[in-house]
Amino acid sequence: MAVSHITTVDSTAGGVSRLAARGVTVGYGGRTVIDGLDVSIPPGLVTTIIGPNGCGKSTLLRTLTRLLKPAGGTVVLDGEDISRLRTRDVAKRLGLLPQAPVAPEGLTVADLVARGRHPHQSWLRQWSSDDASVVERALAMTGVLDLADRPVDSLSGGQRQRVWISMTLAQGTDLLLLDEPTTYLDLAHAIDVLDLVDDLHESGRTVVMVLHDLNLATRYSDHLVVMRAGAILAQGHPREVVTEELLYEAFGLRAKVIDDPMGDRPLIVPIGRAHVRLDRGTPA
Rank of each mutant, 00 (worst) to 15 (best):
W164M: 10
A188E: 04
G172M: 10
L176K: 08
H189K: 13
Q159G: 04
L177Q: 14
T173G: 02
V197C: 03
H189T: 06
L185R: 13
T168I: 05
L176S: 04
M209G: 04
D198Q: 15
A190V: 11
H189F: 01
S154F: 09
Y184K: 08
R205P: 00
T183D: 07
V210G: 02
Q159N: 13
L200T: 03
L211C: 07
T173V: 14
V207K: 05
V210R: 04
D186E: 12
S154N: 07
L178P: 00
G158P: 02
E180C: 04
H212M: 07
S154I: 10
G157N: 06
D195H: 13
H201I: 08
M167P: 00
G158D: 04
H189C: 09
T183F: 11
Y184P: 03
G204H: 15
V207Y: 05
G158M: 15
G172S: 15
T182F: 01
L175A: 06
L155A: 05
V208D: 05
T206S: 13
T173I: 06
S203I: 10
I191N: 02
L178F: 13
L194W: 00
S166M: 10
H189W: 03
S166A: 15
A170E: 05
H212A: 06
A190F: 02
T206C: 11
L177R: 08
L175E: 15
G204V: 14
H212V: 12
L200F: 08
G157V: 12
T173C: 11
S154A: 12
